[in-house]
Design a protein around this nucleic acid. Structure first.
Lengths: 344, 344
DNA sequence: TTGTAAGCGTTATCAT
DNA sequence: ATGATAACGCTTACAA
């Protein structure tokens, strides 16, 4: 219980024989300091083990050294991967991460967020999809003076304010792969209405069919909402079709697991009777039987890059000039859930 | 003067015609205030939409209204459930949640944590397993003056500092169920060495066998580390045994998924040829084929209770007298992965 | 290049 | 029961 032992800026100033402002300048890397004084002060700081008090800084600066993760994403693994990436970027800096889940669809969501941002005076926030797709939220951050970077499945904002994966192109490639294997009747399980990622993935799917001159009847498109259960429902409808699709692209892995589940219940063998491709490459993809061919997007890398953008130009961190990439490529992970169509 | 239009305590004091200290008293629910003044000040607070500045409070109180979640748990879903539970408890309070992952096995882990706690001056932390099992960490929190509550699979601390599930009893019951179905050769896949949960679950397993007077040869016990892959390895060893076990209890679902995977690769049917029980009831359990019988522990409830303990007696929150429960019961979720043994 | 004084918005001390 | 005044630890003017 030795709270008294923690040195303050005054202690450093006294021991170093300078004013606290000088110490403050050293801490904040002010350019106008004699190398002499700087070294001396830095030595004292090291000797005393002085660490600036974040609360005092927050008060004086009217800004907290806190980076928020704001999300309303239902996928635990995705959220964890984002946290992981952010923390990599924040490690060794003076920033901490604060997580703020939002209730999707809640009427008070925007107010909740405003309260949160205003009260805590966050330095910046990383917005995860789907809330990141909401322009009003971005404007809110702007108006409050809180930096923000949006994560998305397509270019949502300027490079400074966004990191994105190219879902459309990735799904196009995945679907093309299916077509290359000989599939012509390919079902599509959609993501939830209003999700940008759902739209992008659908567009990529359609791109591939169009390029191969394959018609896409509405009946081959089934609704879904990214849940396992919705994948089952969608697959049941698709597998009732006559003739049956020989392959299904599911807009995420969770639903793909539902598709696999439904197919198995009908005694269909995957991939012999039905090929399946998912999206996300969550752990479930590798654990399914057979292991699921899917699209992997570099979540953690994107989140790391986003966090670096947020803290760019602060302290030791690279200046904004050193641009972090904004577009990330997703890749097709080929496992065992795809084969050439049989004589279905 | 008003750079931001956000009212401060001074504004409230001026408008209400009292001193800032009086306003402070109102905010902090000081008992020695005339109901008259209180009402007047509260009215002004409401009119102005005044919200105390957390940074200033943190500086004056030398304590942040931040609750930390400290964890080194590899399971994304578990961590998310804990976050969920904490946020439920924190919702509507002045507290925010900060997440702090720790690198298990890192030599600097303890130092990292100390730095974090000292710098951020957290109000309290929720320690998740397995790091919560480390007494040194608890002592560290104590010495820094940071409240803490440990989550665990057995009573780790006093009621004030802990919420626990009774893993041993839950596994005993699960194993007894297996025995009741007629199984006698039951394999056990262990959790990682040094994890309290692994130990408790093993003990529960042994309790049940002992009560039923069933011998447990060492060969029926396989190592694991809570990962899917380790489940596969363990199952392969177990299924090589002659005679083969008719059932396997896996110390978590992830490994149980590996067991199912390995069994399927050998052409074994579950549950006809092999019954399997897991632990955790993560989403994977319901998605497996067949759906996995498993033990569900009330993670979110435990986390909520833990968070309530942490903020007990502050502001509107119930006094410490109103004790939150410390022990939580886990329940067996019967699905389709268990049946009576065949003629294996 | 460095120091002085005045905040930042709250709580604690000690009056009255 | 209430208020003046001094912390809390740091930063931003503005001087020197």
């Amino acid at each position: 219980m030795q709270k008294t032992n923690r040195p303050t800026i005054n202690d450093v100033a006294r021991v170093a024989g300078v004013s606290k402002k000088t110490v403050s300048r050293v801490i904040n890397r002010s350019p106008l300091l004699s190398g002499d004084t700087r070294e001396r002060v830095e030595q004292v700081i090291a000797d005393l083990g002085y660490i600036p008090n974040p609360q005092a800084r927050a008060l004086a600066l009217r800004r907290n050294y806190l980076i928020g993760l704001v999300h309303d994403n239902p996928n635990a693994q995705t959220v964890m991967n984002v946290q992981q990436g952010m923390l990599e970027a924040l490690y060794g800096t003076e920033f901490e991460m604060v997580v703020r889940p939002l209730n999707r669809g809640s009427a008070t969501m925007l107010d909740d967020l405003r309260h949160f941002l205003e009260r805590q005076r966050l330095f910046g926030v990383l917005l995860m999809p789907p809330v990141s797709e909401n322009d009003t939220v971005a404007e809110l951050c702007d108006s409050i003076g809180c930096r923000y970077v949006r994560m998305g499945s397509a270019a949502l904002d300027t490079a400074e304010h966004m990191v994105a994966s190219n879902d459309r192109e990735a799904v196009r490639a995945a679907t093309q792969y299916l077509i290359g294997e000989g599939h012509r009747r390919i079902g599509l399980v959609l993501g939830p209405h209003g999700f940008r990622s759902a739209r992008e993935r659908r567009l990529g799917f359609e791109d591939a069919l169009k390029a191969a001159d394959i018609a896409l009847p509405r009946s081959l498109i089934a609704d879904g909402n990214y849940t396992f259960e919705s994948g089952i429902v969608a697959a049941e409808r698709l597998l009732d079709l006559m003739p049956r699709p020989t392959a299904i692209f599911s807009s995420n892995d969770e639903m793909a697991a539902g598709v696999v589940h439904a197919a198995r219940q009908r005694g269909l063998d995957i991939p012999r009777d039905l090929s399946v491709i998912g999206f996300d490459d969550t752990p479930i993809a590798g654990h399914l039987w057979p292991p699921l061919t899917t699209v992997r997007w570099p979540i953690a890398s994107m989140a790391r890059s986003a966090a670096l953008k947020l803290i760019a130009g602060v302290g030791d961190n690279p200046e904004p000039e050193v641009r972090e990439p904004s577009m990330f490529l997703s890749t097709l992970i080929r496992r065992a859930s795809v084969a050439a169509p049989g004589d279905g």
